[in-house]
Simulated assay, not measured.
Amino acid sequence: MAATTGVRTSPRKTYSDWANRHRKWLFASPAIILVGLLITIPLVWTIYLSLTNSEGSVRSDHQFIGFDNYAEVFADVDRFWPAVVRTFIFTGGVLIIELVLGMAIALLLRRPFRGERWVRVAILLPLVATPVAIGMMWKLIFDPNIGFANQALGFFGIAPQPWLSGEFTALPTLMFVDIWQWTPMVVLILLAGLTSLSEEPDEAARIDGASAAQRFWFVTLPLMRTTVIVAILLRSIDALKTFDILYATKGKGGGSFNEVETLNIYAYGLSFDYNDYGVASAVLIIFFLLIIAIMWLITFKRKEKVSK
Rank of each mutant, 00 (worst) to 15 (best):
L188K: 09
I232A: 14
A204C: 03
L191T: 04
W180Y: 14
I232N: 08
F218E: 10
T226G: 03
T173A: 15
T242C: 06
A159Y: 04
T183N: 07
W180F: 12
P201G: 08
T242K: 04
E203S: 05
D202T: 07
L240V: 12
E199H: 01
F216S: 01
I207V: 15
W180G: 04
T220L: 07
A192G: 15
T242P: 02
W180M: 09
T169M: 00
W180L: 03
S198L: 01
V186M: 15
D178I: 01
M175Y: 10
I232W: 13
V228T: 15
T183E: 08
L171V: 10
Q214T: 09
P162Y: 05
W163I: 01
A159I: 04
L233W: 04
F168E: 01
V186A: 14
I179H: 03
V177C: 06
L197G: 00
T242R: 10
F176R: 03
L194V: 04
L190P: 03
D208Y: 09
P222N: 13
A212G: 03
S196V: 01
L190N: 10
T226Q: 11
P160H: 06
L221H: 11
L197A: 01
L240Q: 12
D202P: 01
S196R: 11
L240H: 13
L190W: 04
I189Q: 11
F176H: 01
T169K: 02
V230I: 15
W217R: 14
A239D: 05
P172A: 05
P160N: 07
Q161I: 02
T220C: 12
R225Q: 14
A159C: 00
L197I: 03
T195M: 11
L188Q: 12
E203K: 14
A210M: 00
A170M: 09
V187I: 13
L164P: 05
S196W: 00
L221F: 15
T173N: 15
G166P: 02
A239F: 04
R225Y: 12
I237L: 15
T220S: 10
P160W: 03
L191W: 11
D208L: 00
A239M: 09
V228R: 04
A159P: 00
A192H: 12
P184T: 08
R225M: 14
E203F: 04
R235F: 13
P201M: 05
T183C: 06
V187F: 08
E167Y: 01
W163G: 00
T242G: 01
R235C: 07
R215V: 06
T227Q: 14
A204D: 11
T183F: 04
S211P: 06
L190C: 02
L190S: 05
W217L: 09
R225G: 04
A192Q: 02
I189M: 11
D202V: 07
E200I: 09
E200M: 06
I207L: 13
G193T: 12
G209T: 03
F216I: 13
T227L: 10
L164Q: 02
Q181N: 12
A231S: 15
T195Q: 14
V230H: 00
W182F: 15
L234W: 13
I237H: 07
P160V: 02
I229H: 05
